[in-house]
Design a binder for these strands. Structure first.
Length: 613
RNA sequence: GUCCCCAUCGUCUAGCCUGGUUAGGACACGUCCCUUUCAAGGACGCGACAGGGGUUCGAAUCCCCUUGGGGAUACCA
């Protein structure tokens, strides 16, 4: 790439056949970051565009397109050009200020047809009449004979000569596809990431550019739209690398039409440009397989099979009844004849399966923060190359940093495995870095969206007079939560009524019935049980007015010293009385969350239940 | 089958372009410290240049081969 164009335009062009995939999100992020960083560095207009590639009539849906845009917006990846989206905050993203839309390919068929006809008249494309079955049979035969299959250009088709006869047949309504006539020359793709990649002459056969249903194939639409929409830099996943010679060949064959919707308007002589290409490494699962929606089906299927192995009475029919799906659906699913995500999602809650997060939506539902996701996926195939003063790599950054420092030459060539554990660690770090106030806001927003029942139970903590309890609550959660979804796990005890605590028998045996340890092992046994200690501690707590975590925690050592007891022998009975378990946040925080009334009520109830025998 | 891409700790990666590093960091893991349970936190540690040939005084770095992984080969994108 020599001169830097302005505007510099990158694009993300998803096909709306599902949610936004983690790999798609990274492609979008890199395209966005590249446009923005180039704009800053070179003081030019750097634009990021979205185009919806919905040329596959069978698989595309509007909801899916909408969902993808929502996910992008949620991640903070905003597009300058493309379908308009108004977020819940009232912000409008996208639009057609450059007047190059529409951005849905299904609405651009007239344009594709004009260029298609143009190519046909140039003798660079031709109608082909073989049926799918015919072609499949040939392909199969070739594979069986260990031969390389290639579509053979029909004898009557001459490169560069308009085939009037074929065109007439097509115009008469005969079912056909249109194929592009590949030139007999080598094609070099100058890839910004991989370097020059040469495709030998004759390597690529005449591929289909318009399907029998009248819609263009991806290859054709992408070339037309990138040119017409002014895309200067195409950054996409490496799986497209082998397609690129096709695109370059078409760019070399095409010239702009005076009127984009009519081949009759003639060419204005301007050749299609070849954008700068950059093919990014792929993202894989930890086991090296490609990250895909199928992983959800796999996980659900495995869970079902495990459950069936354990419980002989659990048949496909029984499962069907339980999850309210036809038996046939279940048997097909079990036999791996269908990989429907919906089935996996339906089955999962009934069998307690955690489906792997694959799509952005999954991560959102699991309580990952958008800024952590973008940070983390930026690291999959890109690195800052910067060191901190202490010699550590710079790997935590935000979108503003990316918009500033992203660069194409720091994109790696090797595919990356998606490490969920590291993502979780980043998420935990980000949660801990929040102020209590920030955490409360974002956490409750998440709860309201995904677990309204918990949000409801938490409402009482929002009152002004419960501020201290709320602070204690947040402090109890923050260091223990890797995601927003597991936020309430550590404070489950606070979400139930004081008289609804269930006591873990093992905890009771150990902390309440067991003998309290002396402060020093050399000292004689205390002879007191946990219950005795708890009873004495209750008196102290009843006299206490300050129920801040620090105050309560400060109380314990004094009490322990006074009674010559080990700290654990004081704190553990209290912990069990308050939470029913030996595992919980610090007892100071527990008391603070419950408040004085709750604390004493729970101690009293515990004493009444566990005294006597 | 054919074509193409790739190769540093278990994982993400820095270093490679412009040969000379005790090959650095992060996550994970282990040990220890802290401690009132669980976390969190702190310290330390374990741990890699796929293999083989070249080129060179010297190769993770440049070249070739092998092996391994991946992608494409669709009327999906």
């Amino acid at each position: 790439m020599s001169a830097i164009p302005s505007p510099l335009i990158t694009r993300f062009a998803p096909s709306p056949t599902g949610h936004l995939h983690i790999g798609g999100a990274r492609s979008a992020l890199f395209c966005w970051a590249f446009a923005k960083s180039m704009a800053r560095v070179h003081n030019i207009d750097g634009r990021f565009m979205i185009r919806i590639e919905d040329t596959d009539q069978a698989r595309s849906s509007e909801e899916s397109a909408r969902g993808i845009l929502d996910d992008l917006a949620w991640l903070g990846i905003c597009w300058d050009d493309g379908p308009s989206l108004t977020t819940t905050h009232g912000q409008t993203i996208g639009g057609d200020s450059r007047k190059v839309g529409p951005y849905f390919q299904a609405q651009r068929v007239a344009i594709y047809n004009a260029y298609l006809e143009h190519l046909v008249r140039l003798g660079r494309a031709y109608p082909a009449f073989e049926t799918t079955e015919e072609l499949d049979a040939k392909r199969k035969a070739a594979t069986a004979a260990k031969q390389t299959y290639k579509y053979a250009r029909p004898e009557d088709v001459k490169f560069g000569e308009f085939n009037q006869a074929r065109w007439a047949r097509a115009q008469a309504g005969e079912r056909h596809v249109i194929r592009f006539a590949m030139p007999d020359t080598a094609i070099v793709v100058h890839d910004q990431i991989l370097g020059d990649v040469t495709s030998a002459a004759g390597e690529v056969d005449d591929f289909v550019i318009r399907k029998a249903d009248g819609f263009p194939t991806y290859h054709f639409a992408v070339v037309i739209d990138d040119e017409l929409m002014g895309v200067t830099h195409v950054m996409r996943a490496q799986e497209h690398l082998s397609n690129t010679p096709k695109h370059v060949a078409m760019q070399q064959a095409l010239t702009r039409l005076v009127d984009d919707r009519s081949a009759a308007s003639g060419s204005n002589g301007t050749s299609f440009r070849t954008p700068a290409y950059g093919h990014m490494p792929l993202i894989f699962n930890a086991d090296g397989t490609k990250m895909s929606k199928r992983d959800k089906a796999k996980a659900a299927r495995k869970a079902l099979k495990d459950a069936m192995a354990k419980d002989k009475a659990l048949t496909a029919a029984a499962i069907g009844t339980r999850v309210n799906l036809p038996e046939k659906t279940i048997t097909d699913f079990l036999a791996a004849e269908t990989d429907a995500v919906e089935i996996a999602e339906t089955v999962a809650p009934h069998f307690n399966v955690l489906l792997p997060e694959i799509e952005i939506w999954d991560f959102r539902r699991s309580g990952y923060l958008p800024e952590v996701i973008t940070n983390f996926i930026a690291l999959l195939g890109w690195s800052t190359g910067m060191k901190q003063a202490d010699g550590k790599d710079v790997e935590k950054f935000d979108m503003a940093f990316l918009a500033q420092h992203f660069s194409i030459d720091r994109i790696g060539k090797t595919s990356a495995k998606f490490d969920r554990v590291k993502l979780a660690s980043f998420n935990a770090d980000a949660i801990q870095a929040m102020t209590d106030e920030q955490f409360w806001t974002r956490w409750t927003a998440w709860l309201t969206e995904f677990t309204p029942d918990v949000a409801e139970k938490l409402k009482s903590f929002a009152h002004a007079d419960r501020q201290p309890a709320r602070h204690a609550l947040v402090q109890a959660i923050k260091p223990r939560a890797k995601t927003l979804s597991e936020g309430h796990r550590s404070i489950g005890f606070a979400l139930i009524a004081d008289d609804a605590v269930t006591f873990d028998p093992a905890a009771v045996d150990k902390a309440l019935r067991g003998v309290a340890q002396p402060a020093d092992k050399a000292m004689p046994p205390s002879g007191k049980t946990g219950v005795d200690v708890l009873r004495a501690l209750r008196t102290v707590l009843a006299a206490q007015t300050d129920y801040s975590p620090a105050a309560i925690d400060g109380l314990i050592p004094g009490f322990a010293t006074e009674h010559k007891l080990a700290m654990g022998s004081v704190a553990q009975p209290l912990r069990v009385a308050l939470t029913g378990s030996t595992v919980s946040p610090g007892v100071g925080h527990c008391c603070a969350i419950l408040g004085k009334a709750g604390t004493l009520a729970r101690i009293d109830r515990c004493l009444s239940i566990h005294t006597g025998n």
